Simulated scan of single mutants.
Amino acid sequence: MRTRNLVILVGVLMLATLTSLQVGSYPVGPRAALETLAGNGTEQQDLVLFGIRLPRLIVVILVGLALSLSGAILQAVSRNALADPGILGLTSGAGLAVMLQLYLTQESILHPTLSRPLAASLGAFSAAILVHLLTYKRGRLDPNRLLLAGIVINAGLTAVTLIISMRLDRRLYDAAVMWTSGSASGKGWHDVLMMLPWLMLLISMALSQTKALDVLDLGDETASSIGLQVQPRRILLLVTAVGLAGTAVAIVGGVGFVGLLGPHIARRLVGPRHGLLLIAAALTGATLMVAADAAARSVLAPVELPVGVVVALLGAPYFLYLMATAMKR
């Protein structure tokens, strides 16, 4: 049953990917899309699919799986079902670091350097430290205080980011505002190559820690009693989750709720064991981002919505539902 659901997720992602390649201001039919991917398309179709849509599609897939994996790790480490890189302030921390880098270097937001994912990860990690300092109570992580601390840190960092962005020149400011809303516009092969080295390392780290995540789900005392070094392992997992979120934010900006929705949907399909859960969460997050990006390009075409806005329209009601469910327990 669980393996079958995993196969279904792969099929849904492939279908969403093919559909996304077809939609936009220059529509490409299913047959033409397949012929172009096979190398038999026209020159214009080659340009649209291989030069514009395919690299952008790969970027949103990578961003979706990174954010969803980050959310799954954070939910296990904190034992809080509402944990998410955006809600806990990691996205805002990464965004602030990138905005500072833009302000100091005056480089274009559309052409990231290799240092940008590192800067974003450092910003996200700083936000994570602040949240956990506010969350620890008597030397232990208090899941009940986690959400409140994240909301406070998120609001503060977002305000500082806005202040810094207003000091950019007009050319950089317009692009930065679009980026902070979560935008995949203009993403190309350069961005794919920028993300891949970081994500290959971080994803392999995440998948190697599935047993530790299962044990941490049982609670710190139980984990310690069966021989797990809780604090060092938690720090390693947090660094992995922060790096995944930071790399995603460095490329497309602030996209929230994917890290919340992806793991929750995956948990319903394959259960709580992280060996399958992380893979299912990655597939689900990627599918959500592909669908949101396709909607962002087509709903108000030729005007393009920020993909972060589309995801928020889906994620905010689900977040409120989860909050209401948690309050009834």
Score class of each variant (00 low, 15 high):
R2P: 03
V258G: 02
V299C: 08
A245P: 08
S70H: 14
Q45G: 10
R145E: 06
M178I: 12
R4P: 00
D220M: 07
L213T: 05
V10F: 15
V270A: 02
Y173K: 10
L9D: 01
M194S: 09
M194L: 15
I52R: 07
G95N: 13
A324P: 00
R116Q: 15
Y173H: 08
D169M: 01
Q229H: 15
K328E: 08
A119T: 14
P302Q: 02
A312Q: 06
V230F: 07
A281V: 07
G186K: 03
R233F: 00
I109N: 01
V290Q: 01
T325I: 04
L15N: 01
G253H: 11
G256I: 05
A301L: 04
G254V: 07
L67H: 08
R2T: 11
L300C: 09
V310S: 02
V270E: 01
T222G: 01
A32M: 04
P306Y: 11
A83K: 14
A76D: 10
S298Q: 11
M194K: 00
L122K: 03
Q231D: 12
Q44F: 14
G188Y: 09
S20Q: 05
S224K: 14
A266G: 11
K328H: 10
Q75S: 12
V60S: 02
W198P: 00
A326K: 15
G89I: 07
R273I: 12
L313A: 15
A175P: 01
L314S: 12
L213E: 02
A32H: 07
L228V: 15
R268N: 05
P263F: 08
L314T: 05
V290T: 02
A241M: 11
S208V: 06
I235F: 06
L110F: 09
G186C: 04
A175G: 09
W198M: 13
S25Q: 13
A281M: 10
L82I: 08
A127E: 02
L65V: 02
A296C: 11
L213Q: 03
L147C: 01
G275S: 07
L260W: 14
P143T: 05
V77W: 09
L218F: 12
T247Q: 09
G64E: 03
A155K: 04
L13V: 08
L88N: 10
I251G: 05
R2E: 11
S20Y: 03
A72V: 06
T161A: 15
A176Q: 14
A223C: 13
V311L: 13
L9Q: 05
S183L: 09
I163M: 12
I8P: 01
T222D: 07
P302H: 01
L196Y: 03
A245D: 09
A83C: 13
T325D: 07
G29A: 14
G254Y: 00
A316D: 03
I265P: 01
G256H: 08
L47T: 11
W189L: 14
A294Q: 00
V48Y: 02
L193C: 07
V239E: 00
T158Y: 04
A296F: 02
L49Q: 10
R145A: 14
